[in-house]
Design a protein around this nucleic acid. Sequence first.
DNA 1: TTGCATGTTGACCGACCGGTCATCTACTTG
DNA 2: CAAGTAGATGACCGGTCGGTCAACATGCAA
Lengths: 200, 200
Amino acid sequence: MTPETDTRTRILATAREMFHSRSYADVGIQEICVGAKVQKGSFYHFFPSKHDLAMAVIDDMADDWAHGFVAEAFDQNLPPVERLDYMIDAAYYWQKATVDAEGRMRGCLFGNLALEMSTRDEVMRAKLNAVFNKAKDRFRATLDEAVQAGALAAMDSEHTATAMLAYLEGIILLAKTRNEPELILVLGPAIKTLRIELTN
Amino acid sequence: MTPETDTRTRILATAREMFHSRSYADVGIQEICVGAKVQKGSFYHFFPSKHDLAMAVIDDMADDWAHGFVAEAFDQNLPPVERLDYMIDAAYYWQKATVDAEGRMRGCLFGNLALEMSTRDEVMRAKLNAVFNKAKDRFRATLDEAVQAGALAAMDSEHTATAMLAYLEGIILLAKTRNEPELILVLGPAIKTLRIELTN
DNA sequence: TTGCATGTTGACCGACCGGTCATCTACTTG
DNA sequence: CAAGTAGATGACCGGTCGGTCAACATGCAA
């Protein structure tokens, strides 16, 4: 690992942690630099601005997400409908871990940033929207597969997938407000009852 | 209207607008004072701190909400299940209006503040949680009524109501990220398909 | 008329914000 | 060895942050 990569990675990891557990506005460059043991000048050697850092953090997180938790939850070896349950469980355990460690539920970094920044930063809004669209496509593929396998009746998979993503984000929002990750377990399984019919 | 009331009301109204269309952290006291045409000293005569202002804004909005939009949507004269559709419509038109006026969907003030502040301000988190609980109770009462009227099969109304609120917040979150209030109309009606069964 | 409460004014505070920059170090390449 | 370049350093910038305060205006009650 070259020193460049190392420093950049440290900044990225620190910023991600801080943005996730607090908010974009609440975390300052100075603070990130201290956390990452980097001087301010070095920071601006790698990132032109705070905005650009946030964009990189989103990419970074989306990447980890797609190759980690999501890849597992949407494991092709699992029957399609079971993947939904698996994903709810994964979300719960993840959030539970941060409550145990920090006392507070962090919620979803993307959802947090989306609500905080969408009206203030059009570029970031678009990027977060793209992340959500990818997630929606995962849901959609799963639903299509379930229909194909005869496990689910035909439906409007595009809209139902969007609805499921919305529901998931809503559950996490409410659970964060209650600071009660268990709510994910209580409400989560009902994601399978959501359904938008095809309009002919 | 006494001068006191007027000044305080102006501060409250301005802050509410600004917090809703931006975020808590992004709006400064100075800016609120300019918008409300009030001097900083006067501001601190009425509100001990920015935090207290936000608390008052939440109360103010929750009040308006309960007596306006919610009171209408949950109109006792409507058949219980129709109230859900009415509420989705109301949410859409409200969000649409701000997009037409400002070009951006503001989303839900409570949801916005909840995700931004829950990990940073325990008192505010608790207050927002209370607001959500009241909303949940409205949903619950409607569901119970629908069951009583035979319009819906028996269910776990407490959890189903919570799920519906979560779904609504999730839809608004996603619609805000897309800056597309129409998504509320597309996904909204599926709120009636959500269901959590009684566990015996 | 005096005294007090309520409300208003705007200068002022230290701290911190995001961001810049000249300078220095260390490594690679010819 | 010389030159070039990627990276690191930390002092510094103007501006804004939330919040304070002493002085002053106004209206009412004793």
